[in-house]
Amino acid sequence: MKGRLIFLLALPVVAGFGQIIPGPVWPAWAQPLTECDVPNRQNEIDFPLPRVNRAIAAKHLNVLVLGAGSSQLPGPSGAKNAYPARLQQALAAKLPGVEVRVATDVKPTRTAVEMVKTLKPSLADAKPALMIWQTATVDAMQAVDPDQFSQALEKGIKIARSAGADVIFINPQYSPRTESMIALATYVENLRWVALQHEVPLFDRFNLMKAWADLGTFDLYSATKKLDMAERVHGCLGGLLADLVLEASKASVPNTESGREPGK
């Protein structure tokens, strides 16, 4: 009897080691690739972005960032340093000869449902080939019905695609101090599931920032009114987001030089 019990207890232990070694949960021994990239960012989902690819080919890429409070920074130079502006810089640098314009529709404390309500005029103004949608934090804080949240995401994807834009999701920030007060899990999972089902690439900001905290790239616990760390974080987010956009758009061209298969 005891033997059987020990066998049963040993199963999760063995499996647990498997989980802990290669995952992004605790890669503390690993060296970061650059200042802000992290090894084994395996949770990111790439799907092809055909509309972005066509826009790049036409040398003219418009992007709309749809988001809430964590897509902006306070202060007079906030708009210049927040990740949408940094994304524009990074894309422009990586796409010489392409005119890149990033517009924003960002207001704090908005749920996905509220963002979808005003989405059509924003799309009509910006005429983007790509809509980057940062959401789920406010939904989790207000504990909105998770089904309503998922339905709003689906509706938003449909509206954006029929307006000629591909979609990328950005999930919530990792915020260690408020972790015990905001139940993000359900919303992060629903966002991921909608992304998978509708073939929307997901920029996994949550696990990226968690890895930064574990690696010591940024001290996300620090209490400060100063903006310098927040600006560097947004700089990194903008740069890595640009990488995801380019990878995903390349993935939609067969036989590119990098040889990436779509959906990988």
Partner: peptide, 22 residues
């Protein structure tokens, strides 16, 4: 008690949205 403590001891412009939970 925990929430009140955190709201007085923690401030970071990166998390202005998340602090709204307080």
């Amino acid at each position: 008690a925990e929430i009140s403590y955190v709201s007085h001891s923690f401030d970071n412009p990166l998390y202005s949205e998340e602090m709204g939970v307080l």
